[in-house]
Design a binder for these strands. Structure first.
Lengths: 368, 368
DNA sequence: CTGAAAGCGCTTACAG
DNA sequence: CTGAAAGCGCTTACAG
């Protein structure tokens, strides 16, 4: 296979430029430019001639040249929840590591902090950047009609908007980059079910808050799979923790010491440093099984030390790269290159990346 | 965080160009160009002045402009095993899907077919492209001193070489893009062990050939984990199949009907269409567990239909994208952007990508 | 509605 | 060893 141009007729060996198109169409360069860029003020007849010539020659616009002449630079912003959440620290760390390459590619990225889970705060942040002239933004979103107006204002400025990790109202963004959290929950359920190998089980589930769409989705997926395929496993009532590590630790401790005790724990949300701390000094039953989300330093360590058996991760680095690629394509008005679904990634002790993601946490382990 | 340039002194708001550097250094544009591109024939004094100016201004070369003026186009080749292997069909399919975008990015990719597992064939293919003036090649390699000479010849032509999926002799390539197959085998072992939940087990292992490094590595990792953490699981002697689907089917059939029967099957290699065919019409013991490698149409289907419980995949699309990025960076003489390890991806029924990878197999299911 | 010309940040001959 | 100039494929005023 050659990455073959669909060139017809004249095979010059050289890619046709707009000059070639103009000449073939019998119009000036400027006119050809007007039609390929849809600038208007062109006679119908000229438009047709240019289109024919483009098709004939298999013209492909050279985006790099266009960007150069226009001194284009991609002005992007990422709106991420503020605070010391270890997962978003990974996102920031990855963006930091990329910064040299971004500069070289004429991309500037601002990171803007937003209040996590607060509709009003998000709305205000969005409003505050309406005049900032960003070409595109990636936002960790919420589902609420209250942010539709700010999003509309941005869109009217020509800002390309994508949802990242947690989606925005579907009509107000051009793409969503994140995993399917129902699938993530199902995956947790499947492997937890598997680990019981037909034996009876009792599972303590923890979640931050069911108002968070991702948590609710994971819980739903988890219940679906257990309910359907593992009838011998009993699910205890989920406890809400607000992702507070202390609360998480306490709930796990109680689950382990209750009578009858649990055979497994699944934390749908964050706050796993508390869970790890409890597991470090508590006796667990034989073949106890523990599943959590997001690979961060403390969950990585816990997986190595056998306090945790499985981590389901959403690969923030992959998500960031993808957001960048998609934003750029959308801004250029190109179509998005084919890419496979983002899948919840399963880590066991044996397929861990060799470099522990370094998230530069100044305050370690309080949240995750 | 802003993706901040390390600009010192004068913050003009505009990125400095080579003109700025030349002016600051008090030399002509041409001279500045000579030093930043190492073209020689420049007085030491001028060199120093230019370097100082570059540092002072925080100059970053505009690669896009350079490529434009030079009419640069990246000429790449992928050397892939010929034949109807479903995994490499996915690689090709992904490359095909990318072709429009590659053209737009001034990248041309030739796919060159090589004889799988044949040192001499690979050597000849390499030799045959020495004069083809590729800027970079990605090759599914072998470990053999016999390919060192061709690789050296290519390198002397200035061709950038990376190993893909299966590595080349380490001194003759600039990077390796592929998974750690020991980790892949360990991962299979871990989850297979888990699935037994403490019960006794007997596992039939299959492999294509232990001469293939990836197969040998997987087998080794698998044995390590089972031997160490799952003493209640017995491993039968691995059977070599040469990745032949018929052979694979026959071995599985026999393993299932033997007395005592097996509790699990792990196929380290390919030929899984045979395995699936057998599983479709054979009775399996309760909680029988089956692990295979590479998500292709028939393993995807088998996972959905519960003939297979786990697929370990190496995400050929991700590997291809990465190879492209790395080749480009290396050719430009830039450093490689930070990227996380490629990890063996675990698929269960619940985290499958929604689009079955379409590999355009003309002859389906004979191999994989 | 149409066209000629300068300029984006580089590289490549070419002339000294 | 050094410099002036044309050109890469575009866009953006500007003039008709």
């Amino acid at each position: 296979m050659k990455a073959s141009r669909t060139d017809s007729i004249k095979q010059t060996g050289r890619k046709p430029t707009l000059s070639d198109v103009a000449r073939a169409a019998g119009v000036s360069y400027a006119t050809a430019d007007r039609v390929i860029n849809d600038r208007g003020n062109v006679a119908q007849k000229s438009v047709r001639k240019v289109h024919d010539a483009m098709a004939e020659l298999g013209y492909v616009r050279n985006v790099a040249a266009a960007n150069l002449s226009r001194q284009r630079t991609y002005r992007l912003a990422f709106l991420l929840p503020k605070g010391r959440n270890a997962f978003f620290s990974r996102v920031r760390a990855h963006l930091d590591g990329l910064s040299e390459h971004l500069v070289a590619d004429q991309i500037s990225v601002d990171v803007i902090e937003i209040d996590a889970f607060e509709v009003e705060g998000l709305g205000n942040s969005l409003l505050s950047i309406v005049d900032a002239a960003y070409d595109g933004i990636a936002v960790v979103g919420l589902q609420s009609v209250d942010i539709e107006a700010p999003l509309r204002a941005l869109r009217e400025q020509g800002v390309v908007i994508v949802g990242l990790v947690s989606d925005l109202p579907v009509d107000y963004r051009s793409a969503y980059i994140g995993i399917d959290n129902i699938a993530a929950g199902r995956t947790a359920g499947r492997l937890l079910g598997l680990s019981h190998g037909g034996r009876k089980g009792r599972v303590q589930i923890l979640a931050g808050s069911l108002d968070a769409r991702d948590h609710a989705d994971r819980l739903r997926g988890f219940r679906e799979v257990i309910g359907q395929d593992y009838p011998n496993i009993e699910l205890l009532e989920p406890v809400m923790t607000l992702d507070d590590a202390r609360k998480v630790g306490a709930v796990v401790q109680q689950a382990l010491t209750a009578e009858p005790g649990v055979t497994a724990v699944y934390n749908v949300g964050a706050g796993n440093s508390g869970l790890v701390a409890t597991l470090e000094h508590c006796d667990r039953p034989a073949r106890f099984f523990c599943v959590v989300h997001e690979l961060v330093p403390h969950t990585h360590r816990a997986l190595m030390h056998k306090q945790v058996d499985l981590v389901i991760d959403q690969r923030p680095d992959v998500e960031v790269n993808r957001a960048l690629t998609i934003l750029k394509a959308l801004i250029d008005g190109r179509d998005i290159p084919p890419m496979q679904d983002l899948v919840p990634t399963i880590y066991v002790r044996d397929n861990l990346p060799s470099h522990i993601p370094d998230t530069n946490l100044t305050e370690q382990g309080d949240h995750d």
